[in-house]
Nucleic acid binder design. Structure first.
Lengths: 179, 179
DNA sequence: CAATGGCATTCATCTAGATTAATTAATCCC
DNA sequence: GGGATTAATTAATCTAGATGAATGCCATTG
């Protein structure tokens, strides 16, 4: 939180906004360096592939920052949409501003810690996608994000896992049977 | 390079080492905060899953840093092995040392830039794993790392792509036919 | 309250890629 | 150089999960 307060001080353009369920905060194809800290509520980012299929990249609930670092780093148009899944309270700030600012060592360390965490999450995700069955990935999802199943429609969870809603439905049926 | 020179100055335990093809630099199950800058040569990191199957997580050739940020961030034992694929010249340093050190804003920015790049790579990888066929992933691999196919055995590329060596062989045959 | 439209479920079929196994081609090493 | 080990290819089968289509379920909105 501390870190965020600093950001707000530094980035004069940063501000608190509230947004409604269903709003799209970012469209693929645009160039932006905005990031969204989730104070309350829930966001998701997703891409749409060549066949028009959606793929959920990440969910961001309270305390997480949603930012398309990939496009910002390479300065290319975003592949990601960002959508508001619940009425939310957000703090928007400009990552470019952050990069250019002069920060203390402590502040930079906080930034690095956040990035490390993100890398860690992505590393797990890659290894999971490569080595586990759909059922294993679903169980791992439940263990890692126990509150999300109640807040996110099932077909988005399926998309996050890289499977179809039908496949997830089948997995759930089988799991119920085993309890 | 600049960034690295600084690291070497700061981390008194850092040193240049050379290692031979086939050497294992890190074993899964250990706790370590070492990172390896590749001056010359090639490394790979990989995990071994419950069924004894290897999964290549990442290759690191000249100019890249190999580090298991996931385990270092959460301070848990590594899931990753790091293996030397060619006789290599490396600079080993301790990330913990780096975290604790007092660095200039410029130095921290360099660090953040490196991490951003890593996140970008992982983001692409996740989206690719979720949305593309094996053939598409292979083509993307060829485009992104054009030098690696000549330096890395095919079964490791297959493993990186998340498919079997047989499947990769078939894909290659089909591609030759189409040229 | 009906009616509409999105969501989850079920089932029948299909397919990309896994698995198994055998064959050939490279590498290694004494 | 020749025997042994590892890598790549091919082909025959199998399977997890995709696709397509039908059905029931709320939850909205008029």
């Amino acid at each position: 939180m501390n870190y965020l307060q600093e950001i707000i001080k530094i980035d004069k353009s940063s501000k608190e906004i509230s947004c409604k369920k269903g709003e799209i905060l970012q469209y693929a194809g645009t160039i932006t360096s905005l990031a969204y800290y989730v104070k309350k509520g829930l966001l998701r980012s997703y891409s749409i592939d060549g066949k028009g299929k959606e793929h959920v990249f990440i969910f961001a609930s309270e305390g997480w920052i949603m930012a398309d670092i990939e496009s910002q780093e390479f300065n290319t148009p975003t592949e990601l949409f960002i959508e508001c899944l619940e009425n939310s309270e957000l703090i928007v700030f400009d990552r470019k501003c952050l990069v250019e600012a002069k920060l203390s060592d402590e502040q930079r360390k906080d930034e690095i810690r956040l990035m490390s965490r993100r890398i860690a999450v992505l590393q797990r995700r890659v290894l999971l996608l490569m080595s586990s069955s759909a059922k294993e990935r679903y169980n791992s999802f439940l263990a890692t994000y126990p509150d999300l199943p109640n807040r996110v429609p099932q077909h988005m969870i399926a998309s996050y896992l890289g499977i179809t809603p039908q496949a997830l439905s089948t997995i759930r049926r089988e799991m119920v049977g085993k309890n």
